[in-house]
Computed example of a mutant assay.
Amino acid sequence: MTDTERHTKLLYWTGVALGPLAWGINLQGIYTLAHFSCESTRFSGAIMSAVLAGIALAGTAISARAVRRGAGAEWSDAHGGGPRTFMAWLGVGSGVLFALVIADQLAASLLISPCLR
């Protein structure tokens, strides 16, 4: 395996993993910051959610770039490039899905008071 192949495989996995990773960090971060948000009104949870939604969308962009790159590889690769293209499309879909979930959690954290326990 050459360094170029290793680098492209890392890009495919990065695109697939950034969305769920950003959502997990956002979920735990919102629960952690809820206690402190009740004491003083701060938008640290909203800022964190916005940044993490951007990270999930960055994973989508990485996967979309891999889809564009893999379109030409289907013709030149003896194996057809099917698994890599599938993985790239999976990264695009999961990145968009997790960015929407983070946006939903952001809306809920802005609408519901953290002091209502």
Rank of each mutant, 00 (worst) to 15 (best):
P83M: 11
Q28D: 04
L90R: 09
L57N: 12
G93A: 15
R69A: 08
A64W: 13
A50M: 06
E39N: 07
L100R: 09
M87V: 14
F36K: 13
T4Q: 15
G91E: 05
S44P: 00
L33K: 12
E74R: 15
A61Y: 06
T41H: 10
W23G: 04
G80C: 03
A50I: 02
L110A: 09
A56I: 03
T32V: 08
V92L: 06
L27M: 03
S37M: 06
M1P: 06
V16I: 15
W13F: 08
A56N: 10
R68N: 11
Q105Y: 05
N26F: 02
A108F: 06
R69E: 10
S44C: 02
S76Q: 14
R42W: 10
H7W: 08
A64S: 14
F43H: 14
L106M: 01
A88I: 09
R84S: 13
E74D: 05
G93F: 10
L27S: 11
M1T: 08
D104R: 03
R42E: 09
I55E: 05
M87F: 15
L21Y: 12
G91F: 04
P20C: 05
L111E: 06
G91Y: 08
T60E: 11
G91M: 02
T85N: 15
A71E: 10
R84K: 13
H7V: 09
L10C: 04
G82K: 00
G80I: 03
D3W: 03
R6E: 02
Q28T: 12
L52K: 09
Q105K: 07
G95Q: 12
D104A: 14
A64Y: 15
A107W: 04
W75R: 14
M48K: 13
A78N: 08
F86R: 09
A99L: 09
W75T: 11
L116M: 07
I47N: 14
A71D: 13
P114E: 00
Q28A: 04
G54K: 04
T60S: 11
G80R: 06
A103W: 01
A99C: 06
T14E: 01
R117L: 00
M1D: 04
A46F: 10
I47G: 12
W75V: 05
A107H: 03
Q105L: 00
L100D: 00
G19S: 02
H35I: 01
L18H: 09
A53F: 05
F98M: 15
T85A: 13
A73P: 00
L110H: 00
T8H: 13
I112M: 04
A61H: 08
E5W: 10
L111A: 12
V92D: 02
L27P: 01
Q28E: 14
A61D: 01
P83F: 07
P20D: 04
M87K: 13
G72V: 11
